[in-house]
């Protein structure tokens, strides 16, 4: 069983987002970079699938990102991933979801793959598109918001359940190869052991560029983006919350309900 995990490095969810001057996106100095939490579920699930399969198979990590992504790649290797492909080329920068999926697809086509695990979304752009586009480009099925996977190695298929609205779940049977988008709650990602961290230092991380994948500059990056970012903005500073003291409970409750509906828009 060959398992490929696509991983993205993102700023820690606690990072205070500050914008660069002009329109250059967010300031990255002082940002703590982590493995996208959903990708971490994907890494963990890949390792568990292999463990359940008696340790048979290879788990390969594919990660697109600049040099700094190596640190996250090493973390995944420390968790137990066998080897990694680091898609690292300035030409990749500024790619939109379509572009990223294209680059990933090219890289994955060069290696054996039965199961492709992704996080259901990255917590930086929150787009939740790459897994589906990737599956389409590889012409294989995808299942998103996956919370459980049972792999039938002999018949090359996966029985999986995914969350849909209203707390309901769909149970699907998927022929392999296929792309799976991991959701929270799928597993509890392991804490890399110290020997794992030591071993990770000597595991293979293959750097791959656009040229290696036969991608031309005009096919990727900002130039090829179908969705172009025009501007970044910050939400208004968080206002000090409303606070009501005393008053008639019925009236206060009415005010709150109205606020929830019309201003907070959560119901």
């Amino acid at each position: 069983m060959n398992i490929v995990v696509c991983m993205k490095q993102v700023p820690d969810t606690e990072t205070k987002i500050r914008l660069k001057e002009g329109n250059g996106g967010i300031q990255t100095d002082g940002v703590k970079w982590i493995i996208n939490p959903y990708c971490e579920f994907a890494v963990e699930e890949a390792l568990r699938i292999r463990e359940r399969n008696g340790g048979q198979g290879t788990v390969t990590l594919v990660c697109m990102g600049p040099d700094r992504a190596v640190e996250s790649i090493r973390t995944a290797l420390a968790m137990g991933v066998d080897k990694a492909i680091h898609l690292n080329d300035p030409l990749f920068e500024g790619s939109d979801n379509f572009g990223v999926a294209k680059i990933l697809a090219r890289a994955i086509q060069t290696i054996p793959h039965d199961i492709i695990l992704c996080g259901k979304q990255a917590v930086d752009d929150d787009a939740s598109q790459v897994p589906q586009i990737l599956a389409e480009q590889l012409n294989i099925p995808h299942v998103m918001v996956v919370e459980k996977m049972e792999v039938d190695v002999a018949n090359k298929k996966v029985t999986t359940s995914r969350r849909i609205e209203g707390g309901a779940k769909e149970v699907l049977e998927v022929p392999l190869p296929a792309v799976f988008g991991a959701d929270k709650g799928m597993n509890e990602p392991r804490y890399a052991s110290l020997p794992g961290i030591m071993k990770a230092k000597s595991k293979e991380v293959k750097k791959v560029t656009a040229a290696d994948l036969g991608l031309k500059p005009e096919e990727i990056g900002v130039a090829a983006a179908k969705v172009k970012i025009q501007a970044y903005s910050l939400p208004p500073e968080r206002q000090a919350g409303k606070k009501i003291e005393g008053g008639d409970p019925a009236q206060v409750a009415h005010e709150l309900a109205k606020w929830l509906r019309e201003e907070a828009r959560v119901i």
Partner: peptide, 13 residues
């Protein structure tokens, strides 16, 4: 919204 709503982007298709 991006970054869990901590920023917004404006995009054009």
């Amino acid at each position: 919204p991006v970054y869990a709503g901590k920023a917004f982007i404006e995009v054009v298709i």
